[in-house]
Structures are given as structure tokens and as C-alpha cells.
């Protein structure tokens, strides 16, 4: 009996989740401190890109699909920026085991992104990131308009389509 009530609760929860999704309130970035690779503290509410779209991508050194996605985008990032003005912010959720490796890795891979460390996972929690990769696209007003929690090979093309639409002020999907 207890099990049934638990399941009921989870189902109610899931429906509530769907209800919220339908309403689609304009979710904005929370105000949480993260660190730059130079150890400076930056508040996530200050992330901005002059009214142009932003991609916020959560990743980790141990996450193979995350690195595949960000390396694939790195190859075409200059083209994306020229076309849509998009800025990509890569948030590493690595802890002390791997966080010292983030700077050598991202620089050796020539990522031109803004990279931040979320070692205490405050931003990850505030944005309800369950697992990585988890990618957000924000419109020029800083509203989250698209999310994705997986990377499939070539998926960066779909992401570019989304960014193009967002840059034009259209709905992404």
C-alpha cells in the first residue's frame, strides 16, 4: 500500500512537471557564484551577450559525450559566432579530482569558450541539471528557451538550427 502511494506521488510529481512545461514560464538564470579558471568569482546572473543568444553547456572531464560535443562545436565556433553572434559558456562540474585538469585540457583543445568551474555544483543544482551533458540555449533577453540532455554525433547541427531561430527571435521548436 505504501508503495502505491509512493508511485502515486511520483506520478503526480511527473504531471506537475508536465503542467509547468506547458505553461513554459520564461526561466532565467539564477544568481549563483561560479569560478573562472583564474580563480575569480563570477555570479551567473551576470552572464550576458549583448542581446544575442547564449549556449550554456554543463560538462565534465569524465563525460565522453560532453567532450565530443564541445570539441565538435570548437571546430565551427568561429563560423557560428560570425553568423548568429552566439556565445558559448562551458560549465565544468568537475570536483577536486579533475578540476585542476580543466584549464590544461580546454586550452590544449583550443576552446574559445568562456569556461567556469562549478565545483560545489551550486549552479548545477539551481538549474536542475541531473546529468551531463546538459545544454541550455538562452535568447537575447536571457530567457531559457531550449534544453537538451544528450549529445548524438552531428547533434551540433541541430543546436545551430536552434541558435539560428533564437537569433531571429523565433521559437526554437
Amino acid at each position: 500500500m505504501k508503495k502505491i502511494s509512493t508511485l502515486t506521488l511520483l506520478v503526480v510529481f511527473a504531471f506537475t512537471a508536465v503542467a509547468f512545461r506547458i505553461q513554459d514560464p520564461a526561466q532565467k538564470l539564477p544568481a549563483v557564484d561560479v569560478k573562472t579558471l583564474d580563480g575569480k568569482t563570477v555570479n551567473s546572473s551576470t552572464f550576458a551577450n549583448d542581446g544575442k543568444p547564449m549556449i550554456i553547456s554543463f560538462w565534465a572531464m569524465w563525460c565522453a559525450p560532453c567532450k565530443k560535443e564541445l570539441n565538435a562545436i570548437a571546430d565551427v565556433y568561429a563560423d557560428w559566432q560570425a553568423e548568429t553572434g552566439v556565445k558559448l559558456i562551458a560549465i565544468s562540474i568537475d570536483d577536486a579530482r579533475n578540476s585542476p585538469k580543466v584549464k590544461p585540457y580546454t586550452e590544449s583543445m583550443s576552446w574559445e569558450y568562456e569556461v567556469y568551474l562549478d565545483e560545489n555544483q551550486d549552479l548545477k543544482r539551481a538549474l536542475n541539471v541531473n546529468m551531463v551533458p546538459h545544454t541550455f540555449v538562452l535568447n537575447g533577453k536571457g530567457e531559457i528557451v531550449y534544453q537538451s540532455t544528450a549529445y548524438v554525433e552531428g547533434g551540433e547541427k541541430h543546436l545551430l538550427e536552434v541558435v539560428r531561430k533564437v537569433a531571429k527571435g523565433e521559437k526554437p521548436e
Binding site: 506537475t16 505553461q23 514560464p25 526561466q27
Partner: peptide, 26 residues
């Protein structure tokens, strides 16, 4: 559950009432 739905309702009408978000996993 009621609070969730109420929160959602209020949120739809007035963005100043704050924002509810969450996650779910089984």
C-alpha cells in the same frame, strides 16, 4: 502537490510571484 499546482497557477498569472523549477528521476 496542491502547493505545486497552486504555485504553477500563480506563476502563470504573475511572474513576480517567483519561479518554481525542479527535477525528477526514477
Amino acid at each position: 502537490a496542491g502547493a505545486c499546482l497552486l504555485g504553477g497557477g500563480i506563476q502563470a498569472q504573475s511572474p513576480n510571484m517567483g519561479q518554481i523549477s525542479g527535477n525528477f528521476q526514477i
